[in-house]
């Protein structure tokens, strides 16, 4: 057993397109320790989202090994993957991906529904976490009744509600202004401080600076992988 929550070796991902097989990830190797704070950067189309989706068990690699908590994901069936998405990983999307018709409480409580918690407990947990996100007065609002920053906080609340230890965020601040981005990043910083592993995709250096480790993708390969300067100075 190692302390690595994520171990990727020789990972490939091809997309089947009408024009033929389109390779996106080419021999990616990566190890991430528990409690690390990683920023993934790289130009548009370099395969960051593709990689994140595989990390989040939303998609399967074409080839290669992905071990999550020392367990090979390849061997898991769809139900087991769903359980991982439900409890082990919290995924935050650039586009929030909230259910438009449901109230904020219901949105946040949804992962608990699939974890088979009781209704009262679900509501209690969801309200509690929304309150901590500063959304105490919006319990029954719909997502389209609050601002983008608030929506992203709801999405983060939903990702956290089952207390996963790994949080994946694909450009979580991509749709937000810089002030709101700072507020969102503060949440990630805090989550990391209490021991969660955070992996965040971003185009902005200011965001990447929150992380301790920065990885750069280029054309489906990792071309750069280094510890943050501040971090190094501290050490």
């Amino acid at each position: 057993m190692t302390n690595n929550v994520i171990e990727i070796t020789g990972l490939y991902k091809d997309y089947d397109t009408p024009a033929g097989v389109f390779p996106v990830l080419k021999d990616v190797n990566l190890t991430i320790e528990a409690g690390d704070y990683v920023a993934i950067m790289g130009p548009s189309g370099s395969g960051k989202s593709t990689f994140m989706n595989i990390l989040g068990c939303l998609d399967r690699p074409t080839k290669g090994e992905y071990k999550l908590n020392n367990q090979s994901v390849k061997s898991l069936n769809n139900n087991q993957l769903a359980a991982l998405r439900n409890r082990t990983i919290g995924f935050v999307f650039q586009g929030f991906n909230l259910l438009a018709r449901s109230s904020l409480v219901d949105n946040v409580a949804l992962p608990l529904v699939y974890a088979k918690d009781q209704k009262e407990l679900r509501t209690k947990i969801a309200k509690n976490i929304l309150e901590r996100m500063g959304l105490g007065q919006y319990f029954e609002s719909r997502p389209n009744q609050i601002s983008g920053g608030q929506q992203q906080r709801v999405a983060i609340a939903r990702a956290l509600v089952n207390q996963p230890r790994i949080i994946l965020a694909d450009e979580p601040t991509g749709n937000l202004d810089s002030k709101t981005s700072d507020e969102i990043m503060k949440i990630f910083d805090e989550l990391n401080q209490i021991g969660n592993t955070i992996i965040i995709v971003t185009h902005e250096n200011a965001i990447a600076d929150h992380a301790r480790r920065q990885i750069r993708f280029l054309d489906g390969k990792i071309v750069e992988d280094h510890r943050n300067k501040k971090e190094l100075e501290k050490a």
């Binding site: 769903a82 995924f91 949804l110 992962p111 974890a115 939903r158 990702a159």
Partner: peptide, 16 residues
């Protein structure tokens, strides 16, 4: 379809 995708992303199984 998107709603289904969201539900699956946060842990809904096929059965759900």
């Amino acid at each position: 379809t998107r709603e289904i995708g969201i539900r699956m992303a946060i842990g809904a199984r096929e059965k759900d």
